[in-house]
Amino acid sequence: MTELGWAPDGPNLLVEANNLDALAQLPDESFRLIYIDPPFNTGRVQSRQAMTTKRSAEGTRKGFKGNTYESVKGLLYSYDDAFADYWEFLEPRLEEAWRLLDDAGTLYLHLDYREVHYAKVVLDALFGRENFLNEIIWAYDYGAKSQSRWPAKHDTILVYVKNPTGYYFNNEEVDREPYMAPGLVTPEKVARGKLPTDVWWHTIVSPTGREKTGYATQKPEGILRRIIQASSAADDWVLDFFAGSGTTGAVAGSLGRRFVVIDQNPDAISVMTRRLGEQVRSVLLPHE
Rank of each mutant, 00 (worst) to 15 (best):
P266F: 02
A144N: 07
M272D: 08
T217W: 04
P164K: 13
A17W: 10
G277N: 06
L14R: 14
L14V: 10
R210E: 15
L195V: 04
Q218E: 12
W200H: 08
E88L: 13
V205H: 10
F132V: 08
F31E: 12
G10P: 09
Y142S: 11
L276K: 05
E95A: 10
L94Q: 07
S146I: 03
F64V: 09
V121T: 14
I137P: 11
L13G: 03
V122N: 00
W237Q: 02
N265E: 12
E29Q: 08
A57Q: 10
F127N: 06
A268M: 01
T52P: 05
R93L: 01
N18L: 04
G59R: 12
T208S: 12
I36S: 06
G183R: 12
S282T: 14
N18H: 03
L285R: 01
A57E: 08
V205L: 10
F259G: 04
R210N: 15
A97R: 01
D198W: 10
V15S: 11
Q25M: 09
K145H: 07
P39N: 13
F83C: 07
G253E: 08
D85C: 11
K189Y: 11
T106D: 06
D236S: 13
Y140P: 05
A7T: 00
N170V: 03
N171E: 15
P11M: 02
V238I: 09
H117N: 03
R149M: 06
A82W: 15
G183V: 04
P207R: 09
R210F: 14
L94T: 09
V238L: 03
V280E: 04
R176P: 07
L14Q: 11
K162E: 14
V283K: 01
G249D: 14
R281W: 00
A250T: 00
V45S: 15
V251C: 07
E70A: 15
L20Y: 09
N131R: 09
W6H: 10
T156E: 11
R129P: 09
K120S: 06
V199A: 02
W201C: 02
V122E: 00
F259D: 07
A50N: 15
D37V: 00
W237F: 03
